[in-house]
Design a protein around this nucleic acid. Structure first.
Length: 605
RNA sequence: CGGGGCGUAGCGCAGCUUGGUAGCGCGCUUGCUUUGGGAGCAAGAUGUCGCAGGUUCAAAUCCUGUCGCCCCGACCA
């Protein structure tokens, strides 16, 4: 490709819309252009990168025996009603774009494809002899994100590789899940991406075990907690740890005491010589369901701990399984309660807060579901609010409160906490970009959509399913986020838009042009992805652009062209190698061949 | 949706407080010079000042509404 023909438009200044480096560089380099919020055009350079990423994914997926296909983006509501996800995905907090056609039929633009693929599997798979089957596609997905952000990182339209596997039993599902784990590690390594595999929450997709692949980056939206010994890593949403030990507190009698204006744990502790681990704090939430009024929830935690909303939501989903999926978990807003005549002694709440206080609040039904985190439940004696303004209470132990409580782990693990597997190591925090997520779905979708097969014994059984996603466009941007400097992007050879750029220092010098053309032809003949910068620009402009675009190898045909010499330089190193033009290919080709393998260990070298 | 901010030339911005000829830098076009790290000089083109109402002799500027976008919080590849 010649730069003349590339419609190369680079920007000298970072665009105002871009916040993080990878977004700025991609826009400045002319790789992407914003069309609307969260909607981007992939320009020719970006498209070349994406196609290379997709090729790597195809190779590795095919190697696991998966079959590529293409499912429709436009999907009937009926299918989603059968899995029970239509309402949760379109109503209120829903993430699916939906529409009605001219006959009044409801349709959705696919944010994911479990329903479609499962119903196909139900149609096609009759016998255990056909299993296992793994299907995948590379496709544009649509999600009505509340807040699109960071260019391709969180778009409303993005490219995703999604795969779905079907198995006769759980053991085979586990086996294939392990295969996918390995395939994913190879894919990311080949793309030059540093990732952490971490235990994850399954979220709206549901199911059993799941693992996320996190590209390490400060701009990442997720917090990963990992142990120094490499034996444990988890998304904070899911992470478990040993809480710091509590300071013992001897409470001989149940008694109230005055805490005027002391509405925070810190204030109470400071005024009464207490440690936060000797206190219990209370949080009030409402859990929203599709089928009616909200469930009030009271959560008690040890004073030094923070609630983990994901864990709490999951706990509520289990306890209230008959009400379906928890659509949302919201803090009970004291101001709103006050509008309905409910006066809460905020700052002085205790676990035994009476159900009476919320009677008459619209959209709330019944009394509190009371959850106590293990950190609080383990306290023998503690201090908590007395449910009366300006008063707290010493409690000799939970039996003294006479409550019906559900014990659960709903606290957030924190960096610095001791690890469960080895109390001598502590958790440290890393930020990460979720580039892949693999799930063992189990039989949730196959049961709902009657995707059954006849087993060896002749019984009809729902298939065991797994699903496996990679954010393709997000991955490409994550690579830039991990690989850039003050001058621009630094692509790994394996997914670079071009492997080599030939920069003609002075386009008016016949000798330079002639030699550059000759090398361009030779490199192309050798199967190298090469860009010839033949633009009528000054050398400085071409050097700046070559750096900005991040092409890994640069050949400069300049002042030494007269004696048949060229310069070879990599994007990431400063050193320049001056060599006879005839040496260029013998020197470059073997190195390129190695680098095309990405970060994989070299075989047979 | 809640909170904060911004819409002025292709890009980045000033002008708005105090209403009166729409500006700067980069980019673009032409010419000359220059030619190894975003060149210099000269000449030039480019705007329904987001949109709609209102106030006014007069609105980019003041008022009302509306749309779009960005940032901080709850969702996800």
């Amino acid at each position: 490709m010649r730069a003349q023909d590339l419609l190369l438009v680079t920007l000298r200044e970072p665009p105002a819309e871009a916040e993080i480096p990878s977004h700025q560089w991609l826009v400045r380099g002319g790789f992407i252009r914003r069309v609307a919020s969260g909607i981007y055009a992939y320009m020719p350079l970006m498209w070349r990168v994406l196609r290379k990423v997709e090729a790597i994914i195809r190779e590795e997926m095919d190697a696991t025996g998966a079959l590529e296909l293409r499912l429709p983006a436009l999907q009937p509501a009926e299918l989603w009603r059968r899995s029970g996800r239509w309402d949760t995905y379109t109503a209120g907090e829903g993430i699916m774009f939906s529409l009605t056609d001219r006959q009044g039929r409801e349709l959705g633009l696919g944010p994911t494809h479990e329903e479609v693929v499962t119903s196909l599997a139900a149609d096609l798979i009759r016998s255990y002899r056909q299993l296992p089957v793994s299907l995948y596609q590379l496709q544009t997905k649509f999600r009505d994100e509340i807040r699109p952000r960071f260019g391709l990182m969180r778009g409303r339209e993005f490219i995703m590789k999604d795969a779905y596997s079907f198995h006769a039993d759980e053991e085979d599902l586990r086996r294939y899940y392990g295969c996918m784990d390995q395939a994913y590690r190879r894919i990311f390594a080949r793309c030059g991406l540093k990732v952490l595999a971490v235990q994850a929450d399954s979220g709206a997709i549901g199911g059993g075990a799941s693992q996320e692949f996190m590209a390490v980056a400060d701009a990442g939206e997720d917090l990963v907690l990992s142990s120094g010994d490499g034996r444990y890593a988890a998304n904070q949403e899911r992470a478990q740890s040993l809480p710091p030990p509590s300071a013992p507190l001897k409470v001989t009698a149940d008694q109230c005491f005055a805490t005027p204006g002391q509405t925070t744990i810190e204030a109470v502790c400071a005024a009464h010589h207490l440690d936060p681990t000797q206190t219990v704090k209370v949080l009030l939430h409402r859990a929203c369901f599709a089928d009616g009024p909200d469930q009030p929830v009271l959560t008690a935690l040890r004073g030094d701990q923070e609630v983990n909303p994901v864990k709490l939501t999951n706990t509520l989903g289990r306890l209230l399984a008959e009400r379906g999926t928890v659509l949302a978990l919201e803090r009970l807003d004291a101001d709103i309660l006050q509008d309905h005549g409910v006066r809460l002694p905020v700052g002085f709440l205790g676990p035994d807060l009476s159900d009476d206080v919320i009677q008459g609040v619209p959209d709330l039904v019944g009394g509190f579901l009371r959850i106590v985190d293990s950190t609080a439940a383990d306290l023998a004696g503690f201090v908590c609010g007395a449910n009366v303004p300006d008063r707290h209470r010493r409690v000799p132990g939970w039996p003294a409160l006479g409550l019906s409580l559900t014990r659960a782990d709903v606290r957030s693990a924190q960096p610095g906490d001791r690890c469960c597997h080895d109390p001598k190591t502590v958790l440290t925090a890393t930020r990460g970009i979720e580039v892949g997520h693999i799930f063992q779905l189990g039989r949730k979708y196959s049961s709902a959509l009657a995707a059954c097969f006849n087993s060896e014994s002749g019984d009809a059984e729902p298939m065991w399913m797994g699903c496996y996603g990679i954010g393709v466009s997000r991955l490409a941007q994550a690579v830039v986020e991990q690989n850039h400097d003050d001058n621009g992007m630094i692509w790994p050879v394996s997914i670079a838009p071009f492997e080599v750029v030939i920069t003609v220092a002075n386009g008016e010098e016949q000798e330079q042009c002639g030699l550059a053309e000759k090398l361009y032809g030779e490199l192309r003949a050798a199967g190298v992805d090469v860009l010839l910068d033949d633009r009528m620009e000054r050398a400085g402009v071409k050097f700046k652009d070559a750096d900005l675009l991040g092409i890994p190898w640069r050949v400069v045909v300049g002042r030494n062209a007269a004696r048949g010499h060229v310069e070879l330089k990599t994007r990431s190193e400063k050193d320049v190698l001056d060599m006879d033009a005839s040496q260029l290919l013998p020197h470059l080709i073997p190195r390129l061949q190695r680098q095309r393998r990405g970060g994989l260990p070299e075989a047979g070298v």
